[in-house]
Computed example of a mutant assay.
Amino acid sequence: MKIELAESYGFCFGVKRAIKIAEENRNSATYGPLIHNANEIDRLKNDFNVALSENLDSFKAGETAVIRTHGIPKQELGLLHERHVNVVDATCPYVTKPQQICEEMNAQGYDIVIFGDEAHPEIKGVKSYAEDHVYVVNAPEEIDALRLREKVATVAQTTRKIEEYQQIIGKLMETHKEVRVFNTICNATFDNQDAVRKLSKEADVMIVIGGKNSSNTKQLHSIAKEYCTDSYHIESQEDLHQEWFSGKNFCGISAGASTPDWIIDDVIDKIKSLTHS
């Protein structure tokens, strides 16, 4: 069995930065999961005593709150500061950018259209930076139901496919004279998606490693499945099944932006043991 890693995969700049910040703030707590990878969150808890709290009210004055890579709503950030909590912001700079754009464009009288998943923490945070006239869409046809004013600005969730964002932009251009387009999809997302597309065209089985609730990992798996029918999204070596590799010759591997190297190494070792037994 030939096993090959995608040319670009795994930890992105923002995740590496956030983990370093968390490791430097021992005995703290993250507000919400720092990244979408339960195994890495467990490691931070066990090795650095960095806890996880989903409850804003659990942070008291003088305690340290590490803000997750996806960011949090503007109002919640303000509350933490008001309560004299020591805020350490690990929000990815690629996420901070659309937050700033929403705030600035909205102040200039633009309606804001955000392409993304309204339930995703990144989008909840980004949306909160616009005062009003802000809408989240997941598909071009959803734009028809919006009562948009003349001036529109649009941003995208950092981990979405560029092709899908172009459809949203095209739809807005059909009906509005002034559309300000900001490409907020991050470079790491482009690189990882291009690499998994290339590899899955050659492989006869694809393994995509990352958290089940990781948006960018889901996107990678979706792309892989377009070109390689036998593509599987797993969180760790425990999810692998020997029958996936039966009769296969070439296994391609990719990993989401929140997947650490140690999990990838474990998966590769497990695949080798399954295909050599």
Score class of each variant (00 low, 15 high):
M1F: 10
I3R: 01
E4R: 09
E4A: 08
E7I: 04
E7L: 09
C12H: 00
A18F: 05
I19E: 03
I19P: 02
E24V: 11
E24A: 13
R26A: 15
A29S: 13
L34A: 04
N37M: 05
I41D: 08
K45V: 14
E54A: 01
S58G: 09
A65H: 03
V66N: 02
P73N: 06
Q75K: 14
L77T: 00
L77C: 04
G78P: 01
G78W: 00
L80R: 11
E82I: 09
E82M: 13
H84G: 11
V85G: 03
T91K: 08
P93T: 01
I101W: 10
E103D: 09
G109V: 02
I112P: 07
P121N: 06
E122C: 07
K124M: 14
K124P: 01
E131R: 15
V134F: 07
A139R: 14
E141Y: 15
E142M: 11
R147G: 12
K151W: 00
K151Q: 14
T154M: 09
Q157C: 13
T158R: 08
T158Y: 03
E163C: 09
E163N: 13
L172R: 02
K177P: 00
R180N: 14
T184M: 08
I185V: 14
I185L: 05
I185M: 07
C186P: 11
C186N: 10
F190R: 02
Q193D: 07
D194T: 15
K198A: 12
L199G: 03
M206C: 10
V208Q: 10
L220H: 00
Y227S: 07
T229H: 13
S231C: 08
L240V: 09
W244Q: 00
G247V: 11
A257G: 03
A257H: 06
S258W: 02
T259Y: 03
P260H: 03
I264H: 03
V267N: 06
D269V: 09
I271R: 02
T275Y: 05
H276F: 10
S277R: 12
S277C: 13
